[in-house]
Amino acid sequence: MWEKLASIDRRVIYALMIFVLALALLRPIGLAIVPSAETKKVYDYIESLPPGSIVYLGFDFSAGGIPELMPAAKSVIRQGFKKDLRFVAVGMWEMAGDMADMAFNAVLKDFPNKKYGVDWVNIGWKPGGEVLLQKMLTSVNEAAVGVDFYQNKLDDLPLMSEFKTLKDAKMIITFVTGTPGEKEYIRHVTSPYKIPFAISCISVSVPEIMPLIQSGQILGGILGMKGAAEYEVLVGAPGSATAGMDAQSFSHALIILFIILGNIGYIRTRKK
């Protein structure tokens, strides 16, 4: 019996994990979510920006990051539109344009008066990684080869007349799953030019991000699905991250249960 406990078939773990995740997503119990200091810093900084400020959004992720990063992106856009901030979205990842399109279209239903080209622009993915960032420091138009994600000329979009270089951004927020990501911004843009920089990252990146927040290179972070859920609470629009926290809670509990069972089996068989 103890041997069995120490070597449970992984398919049993998979099956129970699917069951727990599905149950928590279909029937959430709504566990209380309290915003952390890191999340609150991002929220407060955006709140402090004067109306009309241009915020740069870096959609530096692909579809794999949607569950954790998309709720954060939607919440930041929602908060910004409420405060009459304007957004320019660019990305170093190929799916950037699609991701930004998805986020803005989800929020625009509640803000029908916001106009493309005036209140927000989706430049989309442009190649080059950190060289793209360096080029945008001298000319966004040149770096983007003059067109946005929808093939509009940037010169025809009123917002772009006020956003000539990255230095015109009052704040930079990147939604990031890996490289290129936050380090490229820190190296070339936000630290050299003292542009306030916030991040939304996936949970597995949190340990790597913490030293950058402590050092002040990043002013605050929406960290993982937990951070996204906290941001939804702060903005007052609970969404998929809030619902997902129940699933994450119970999946963690299930893993801990298996760890305990595995260790009981291990200790009993070791003694033999």
């Binding site: 566990l31 209380a32 926290m245 963690h252 509990a253």
Partner: peptide, 11 residues
Amino acid sequence: MLGRVPLGKVL
């Protein structure tokens, strides 16, 4: 695992 999810506080 428990400290980063709301269930930790509840349990």
